[in-house]
C-alpha cells in the first residue's frame, strides 16, 4: 500500500483505539476505513511476543481505563452508588457521547449530570443526576479563582438608607443548587462510611463554598436559597427580599430577622466578594 499521510494515519489509529469493543474490531470498522483501508500489519510492525493488532490493543485497553479513573476522581460517590459494573457501562457510554475535547482531562466530566438526565431507561437516573450535579459543583468550587478577602470598605460606609439598593457580588467560589432529592445528606452519609440506600424524592437546597482552600457544603432552607439565588443573579437586596417575602408569605420583620442571621454566615464564609451600592 502507499505510504499514508500523517493525517490519515492518526485518524485511523484514533478510530482503532477508541472503538467501543476492541482494537481488533476497530481495525475492521468503517470508521477506521474512512481514514485508511489497511490491515494492522500494513501499519504496525510485529514484536517478538505481540502481533501488530495486539500492540494497538495495548493503547486501546488503556483508553477507557484512563477515562474511568479520571471520572472516578470527580464522582466517587456516584461511582459508589452505581457499583463497579454499572459505573463501567456508564463511563463507556458517556465517553462515546462526550469524548474529551479539552487539553485537561479534569474537564471530561462536565457533561455527566446532563448525560445522566438523558438516560431515561437508567434506573434512578433522576437522583443519580442530582448526585452528579452536586459532585460537579464541588469540583467547580475547588477549582474556582480565589476571590481574595471580603472587601468590607463598602460595608463600613453603608448608610441604613443604602441597604435596600445594595447589590451582593458573589464570590467565584460560591455555587448554589436546588435538587429534587436530598443528595447532600446522602453524600454526607456515604462519606461517613454509612451504607445508605439512594434517597426518595424530596426537595433540597445546598450551598457550596470554599474556605481556607477546602470545599464546604451546607443545607439551606428554601427561603434562604431563594434569597441567595436572587442576590447571586444581581437583584438588589430590597427587591430580592420583597420577592421572597411575597413567595413565602412571610412577615417583613420575620424575613429581616432571618436575614440578619443568614448574612453573618454569608460574610464569614465568603459567599460574597463585595457589596456595591448605587
Amino acid at each position: 500500500m502507499a505510504e499514508p499521510s500523517l493525517r490519515q494515519l492518526q485518524g485511523w489509529m484514533q478510530a482503532v483505539l477508541t472503538h467501543p469493543h476492541c482494537a481488533w474490531c476497530g481495525v475492521d470498522s468503517d470508521d477506521a476505513r474512512r481514514h485508511l483501508d489497511a490491515r494492522a500489519e500494513e501499519i504496525v510492525l510485529p514484536a517478538a511476543r505481540l502481533q501488530p493488532v495486539d500492540r494497538l490493543a495495548v493503547y486501546a485497553q488503556m483508553y477507557p481505563l484512563r477515562m474511568r479513573d479520571a471520572l472516578a476522581t470527580d464522582y466517587p460517590v456516584l461511582k459508589d452508588a452505581l457499583g463497579a459494573e454499572a459505573w463501567k457501562s456508564l463511563v463507556d457510554e458517556y465517553i462515546r457521547a462526550y469524548p474529551s475535547v479539552h487539553p485537561n482531562l479534569n474537564q471530561l466530566g462536565r457533561h455527566l449530570p446532563r448525560f445522566l438526565r438523558s438516560l431515561r431507561d437508567l434506573k434512578s437516573c433522576a437522583v443519580l443526576a442530582d448526585l452528579a450535579e452536586l459532585e460537579l459543583a464541588m469540583t467547580l468550587v475547588f477549582d474556582a479563582e480565589e476571590p481574595g478577602p471580603f472587601d468590607a470598605r463598602g460595608l463600613a460606609t453603608l448608610r441604613p438608607a443604602d441597604w435596600s439598593g445594595a447589590v451582593f457580588i458573589a464570590a467565584p467560589t460560591l455555587q448554589l443548587r436546588a435538587f429534587g432529592y436530598p443528595v447532600n445528606a446522602y453524600l454526607q452519609a456515604v462519606k461517613r462510611g454509612e451504607s445508605v440506600p439512594l434517597p426518595d424524592a424530596a426537595p433540597s437546597f445546598t450551598v457550596l463554598y470554599r474556605k481556607n482552600w477546602s470545599v464546604w457544603r451546607r443545607e439551606l432552607s428554601q427561603d434562604e436559597y431563594r434569597l441567595l439565588s436572587l442576590l447571586v443573579q444581581g437583584r438588589c437586596l430590597a427587591k430580592a427580599m420583597k420577592k421572597v417575602q411575597r413567595d413565602a408569605a412571610l412577615e417583613p420583620d420575620e424575613l429581616s430577622a432571618r436575614l440578619r442571621r443568614w448574612s453573618q454566615d454569608w460574610i464569614e464564609d465568603g459567599y460574597f466578594s463585595r457589596i456595591e451600592t448605587s
Partner: peptide
C-alpha cells in the same frame, strides 16, 4: 507524541512514525 485528532483528546502519549513527513511537521 500526539494525543488526538479531529478535536478529540485521548489523553495518551501516542507514538509517531519516524519519517521525513513527521519530522517536517
Amino acid at each position: 507524541c500526539w494525543t488526538g485528532v479531529a478535536g478529540r483528546n485521548l489523553h495518551d502519549l501516542l507514538p509517531l512514525p519516524y519519517d521525513e513527513q513527521t519530522l517536517a511537521h
